[in-house]
Design a protein around this nucleic acid. Structure first.
Length: 742
DNA sequence: GAGTTTGAAACT
DNA sequence: CAGTTTCAAACTC
């Protein structure tokens, strides 16, 4: 049994003192000081980066063919981390199972389980145990192989290392180990996210020994675990296998594809999670990636969270000899998961899939009754007005909404709406406009609302059974009102906008099937360039300029499909962007936040500014000035307020003037009517003018008689002229021949 | 009304 | 997740 001495750990920098390594050395050559685990540093040995480590050493997989009994002879570790299961295709496993939650060094005794797992149980933390060893140091020498395990982490969590099985190889076992005498395997468990790959080599022996290690067949499996002060912090597992094939060159690039599936949850009590890793690696490869600086270049497997006392956490990794140069970085995020299982496969896996348990999808479905009815629905807090329609199965038809595709058994059934004006979010196409509807899909079931007021027809939707389940993803306030049989209506809020439009385009463009050749508009499309506001508002196109428009009654089926496709792609596509903030926040806020860069969020380009709300932390804008204390915003707001006041004043003035003019015409209308349509001024005849002049002259003479000043005299004349005009106007309404009497 | 700017959404 | 492309609204002249 080879145990790494405490002095070795002294050489380790602090960054990796919290790590645990397992070193396997099948038959370390004499020139390899790292093989013995007691090697001395080499001053001239450069400290390689991880990429270098990966480039030079030859891969030696943990999937040793040696029997498990020969893999491990002893193990001493200070495992205080979560349970880790590194499982591969092999049934051979190495289990490190500290049973006591403690941060103190543990002495683990490997046991071979029935399924070829090496279980490292904590023997004792008593003085009788080998506590003199440095924490985080474990060496296993299973029949010539050495494992150095350095780890630190949370206590009370078992580590299960399942060694891959390469049973296909003949002569496995000790002989295999001898066949690869230079295999050097390092398994580091724990550590920090900033663990540098070079430290892996140092964990084995020292930094200077890496050069020697690089000359060997080296395999490094590093499971670096970020040890956060708080358990809620993310924890990373970095599993690195540095491989250097003998034929490898430093410039060889690698095709490193590691995919997996991540199932994450934030629930503190969750069933064991399974993370499947696979790898598609080629030999003679090099991964010139620093997973610490560029983790995105590697496959990051977020293992979600864990609790300090996670009962079980397993990470299974494939370490196949045939897969050389692979590098696996497993990142663990938070710390609430009680158990995790990471299993791997040697076969390529599908791309990473993230299953997110999103928030509740609010949906409101109002099934329609079979009786014909229209109800106005006011959604509290919604600016949309909905109308619930039900199919009139027996109502009398006052119009023909269906197409002339007469083979359709679903003729349009106009619905008579109550005469009260109903404000709807969708147009109600008058019945007379339906005659303009030419070819109509036979499957569609247009329904016409005939009202006495100008209304718009709520968009009918063929209740396709195959899409109805998806319509349950409609956003809050959305009402799906399936009618009886194949009839129904779908009411969409106005924010069924762009995505729906584009989705509709795709769907409709691919739509192929109308029953009759007369329905040739299947080749048409929704307005592609220049989406009309009608569709954006959930209305039918009625008076817009779109051509080959599908946004009408005739293509309700296609439209419904488009809605379905859109909702399938993004169930939240139609949720309003502007909504209330977090709980307790009364202010509105943008759900996604803006991404402005040049406008400073003070123009209508900015969705936040357009909605008259402040930018929030969700925004990704640059140079944002749309915050509460922004002087620019305040100035802008003041200007806007002033402009608004000005507009309001102008509007009020115009309204008042219009009212007065209208009033004047109203009062003079009888004169016009009684005068045979003549305007009032037509009553100012020669006689009236002469009489008026006589009145004015009379007033001037009176002013002279009483010796009034000129100004007073002029005023008296003007006042008399006013009275004359009034009499003219007054007389015009009474007689065709107004008389002027002074 | 034409041309430009801008940013959201889609796409890669 | 970041970069690119598309496109329509906003904006300017």
């Amino acid at each position: 049994m080879d145990v790494v001495s405490p002095e070795l750990n002294i050489l380790l920098p602090d960054e990796i003192m919290d790590t645990e390594a397992i070193v396997m050395d099948d038959d370390p050559p004499a020139e390899s000081p790292a093989a013995s685990g007691q090697s001395q540093p080499s001053a001239d040995a450069p400290i390689p980066m991880e990429t270098d480590v990966l480039a030079v050493p030859e891969i030696v997989s943990l999937c040793s063919d040696a029997p498990p009994t020969q893999r491990t002879q002893a193990l001493t570790t200070s495992i205080t981390t979560d349970s880790i299961l590194c499982s591969t295709t092999s049934a051979t496993q190495l289990l490190l199972t500290p049973s006591i939650a403690s941060s103190s060094p543990l002495t683990l005794r490997p046991k071979l389980s029935a399924n070829h797992q090496i279980i490292l149980n904590k023997v004792a933390s008593s003085p009788g145990a080998d506590t003199t060893r440095s924490p985080g140091t474990t060496t296993i020498t299973p029949g010539g192989q050495k494992f150095m395990v350095t780890a630190i982490g949370k206590s009370g969590q078992s580590i299960v290392l399942q060694l891959p099985h390469t049973g296909s190889k003949p002569g496995s076992g000790q002989g295999e180990a001898k066949a690869n005498p230079q295999h050097f395997k390092v398994l580091t468990i724990g550590g920090r996210t900033d663990l540098k790959p070079v430290m892996v080599g140092q964990a084995v022996s020292s930094a200077s020994q890496m050069s020697t290690l690089q000359a060997q067949q080296l395999k490094t499996v590093q499971i670096a675990k970020k040890t956060q002060v708080s358990s809620a912090g993310p924890i990373k597992f970095i599993i690195t296998k540095a491989v250097n094939n003998k034929g490898l060159t430093a410039q060889t690039s690698v095709s490193n594809v590691i995919t997996g599936r991540v199932l994450s949850t934030s629930s503190p009590v969750t069933p064991p999670r399974t993370i499947t890793l696979s790898e598609t690696l080629s030999s003679n490869s090099k991964i010139a990636i620093s997973p610490l600086k560029s983790p995105s270049k590697l496959t990051m497997v977020s293992v979600a969270s864990q609790v300090p006392n996670s009962p079980q956490k397993s990470v299974s990794l494939p370490l196949n000899m045939a897969h050389l140069g692979q590098q696996i970085l497993v990142q663990q995020s938070t710390a609430t998961s009680p158990a995790k299982v990471v299993s791997s496969h040697s076969t390529p896996m599908k791309p990473v899939q993230t299953v997110t348990v999103g928030g509740p999808q609010f949906k409101t479905i109002f099934p329609l009754s079979t009786s014909s009815n229209v109800q106005q629905i006011q959604v509290p807090g919604s600016r949309f007005h909905y109308v619930r329609l039900v199919t009139a199965t027996t109502g009398s038809s006052t119009g023909q909404a269906g197409s002339h595709c007469t083979n359709s058994s679903m003729t349009a059934k106009p619905m008579v709406v109550n005469t009260a004006q109903v404000r709807m979010s969708v147009p109600i196409i008058p019945a007379q406009t339906m005659k303009q509807v030419v070819p109509k899909p036979l499957t569609s079931s247009g329904q016409v609302l005939t009202t006495q007021t100008q209304q718009r027809l709520i968009m009918p939707a063929t209740p396709l059974p195959q899409i109805q389940p998806n319509l349950t993803n409609l956003p809050p306030g959305t009402m799906l009102a399936p009618g009886s049989g194949n009839m129904g209506y779908t009411v969409l809020p106005a924010h069924y906008v762009t995505q729906l439009q584009q989705s509709a385009y795709v769907t409709l463009a691919s739509s192929s099937g109308f029953p009759t050749p007369t329905c040739i508009q299947t080749q048409a499309r929704l307005p592609l360039n220049g989406y009309c506001d009608c569709f954006a508002n959930g209305e039918f196109c009625q008076s817009c300029n779109c051509t080959n428009c599908f946004n009408n009654l005739e293509h309700e089926t296609e439209r419904a499909k488009a809605i379905k496709a859109c909702l399938d792609r993004n169930p939240e596509a139609f949720k309003p962007k502007i909504g209330k903030g977090k709980e307790g926040e009364s202010d509105r806020r943008h759900s996604k936040g803006c991404n402005c860069k040049r406008s400073g969020c003070l123009k209508n380009y900015c969705e936040c500014y357009e909605a008259k709300i402040m930018c929030s932390s969700t925004c990704k804008c640059v140079g944002c000035k749309n915050f509460e204390e922004s002087p620019e915003r305040k100035t802008l707001m003041h200007l806007a307020d002033a402009a608004e006041v000005r507009v309001q004043q102008q509007t009020a003035a115009k309204t008042k003037l219009s009212s007065q003019i209208s009033d004047l015409f109203t009062r003079t209308t009888p004169a016009i009517t009684s005068g045979g349509g003549r305007m009032p001024f037509t009553f100012v005849t020669k006689e009236v003018a002469e009489a008026t002049c006589e009145c004015l002259l009379e007033q001037a003479e009176q002013a002279e008689l009483i010796q009034q000043p000129q100004a007073t005299a002029e005023r008296m004349i003007l006042e008399e002229f006013g009275r004359c005009l009034m009499r003219i106007i007054s007389s015009a309404g009474k007689t065709d021949c107004p008389s002027i009497n002074c």
